[in-house]
Design a protein around this nucleic acid. Structure first.
Lengths: 187, 187
DNA sequence: TGCTTAAAGCAAAGATCATTGCGTTTTGTT
DNA sequence: AACAAAACGCAATGATCTTTGCTTTAAGCA
């Protein structure tokens, strides 16, 4: 039921198999497949289903892992324009555009489903926290009044993800509104 | 795949069957059952599985229906203390305590999973919007400066649900903090 | 270059889910 | 009371899914 242990043999065949599985998941999610199961993922990856059953507790756990990997493999750096308002706005817009994509929505659902009561927090939220911290600290370094990291997470990130989770519209305008609101708190 | 049509025969046997199904779902969710499927629900309800397959698109759709019913059957009225700060705080605390319960968390996950791209919004959010509207309108009637309904939804409700969805801690203190933040916007 | 063993493959068996056609019950209406 | 349609039950069937024991491969290391 819980996640399996970390791989103690990351290279060679094991590595190739893992890559194939990740790729398979990515393709399936991208295509909007409605039935994503271990056997289906395994077939496309050219791998034996047993491997999946033995390594992950369930499909959502695997989906979450892939989602985190996709988000964590940096490519997106936080905006640094010299203005808190501008940094936050651009950052929020980037996130809004990103998570509004159908694949991301799918991953989001998987992450919510995969959460267990005993486990607190998730890598994605932590990642967003780090990014928020970066922006906030820079602003404070410039002497600008800035919200706390928690406030940014609660009032910009949370509403964005909430909208996606409940299929409510998410666009740049909405992202900008959230940033306006959170900045209004510190004035 | 989509939800079936509304029942055109609400009484008698059909009504009893529906009640039995709802009860069954409630019990299973309450017990924290990990495998909730149509056959399982049906057996406990003393009903034929076919009935479920024919009426609901999938398990999550049924779970969402039960969740909405549980929330909508009023019992909880919105606080009316004469002070916006007080009303919002108490209301947020009520919600926080409610959704922090394991059963509610389970329902929340189901609602997120049940959402489809083509469908926008959900009954629960609408319900919260009505409640927020009530509090906000009363405050304005008294001449108090008040946030918009959207602001309450984005900055109080969304963070609460977000925390629950990602297994982050949710308590009274957190609820109060959110209310403080949203009120700070309008000053 | 071997050795050890983690990790993957294979195959079989069982469990559960999901679908479908058809007959039966029963609701709501005339 | 009688009818038509809706809703449910039943049973058979096929499709997946899931688990398990055992074998084979090959990664990491001495």
């Amino acid at each position: 039921m819980a996640d399996r242990v970390a791989a103690s043999r990351p290279g060679g065949r094991s590595g190739r198999v893992l890559t194939a599985i990740y790729t398979s998941v990515g393709e399936l999610v991208g295509e909007g497949a409605d039935k994503i199961s271990f056997p289906v993922i395994a077939e496309r990856a050219g791998v034996n289903p047993t491997t999946l059953y033995r390594r992950w507790a369930d499909v959502n756990a695997l989906l979450e892992e892939v989602a985190v990997a996709a988000l964590t493999r940096d490519g997106e750096s936080v905006p640094d324009t010299g203005s808190l308002q501008e940094d936050l706005t651009r950052w929020a817009e980037i996130i809004a555009r990103d998570i509004a994509r159908p694949e991301r929505t799918r991953y989001l659902r998987a992450m919510v489903s995969a959460r267990v009561e005993t486990v607190s927090g998730c890598p994605v939220t932590e990642k967003r926290g780090e990014q928020a911290s970066e922006v906030v600290l820079r602003a404070r370094g410039r002497g600008e009044p800035a919200p706390t990291v928690e406030q940014v997470l609660d009032h910009v990130i949370a509403p964005l993800y909430h909208h996606v989770a409940f299929a409510l519209p998410v666009d740049d305008e909405y992202a900008r509104r959230l940033v306006r609101d959170v900045l209004a708190m510190v004035r």
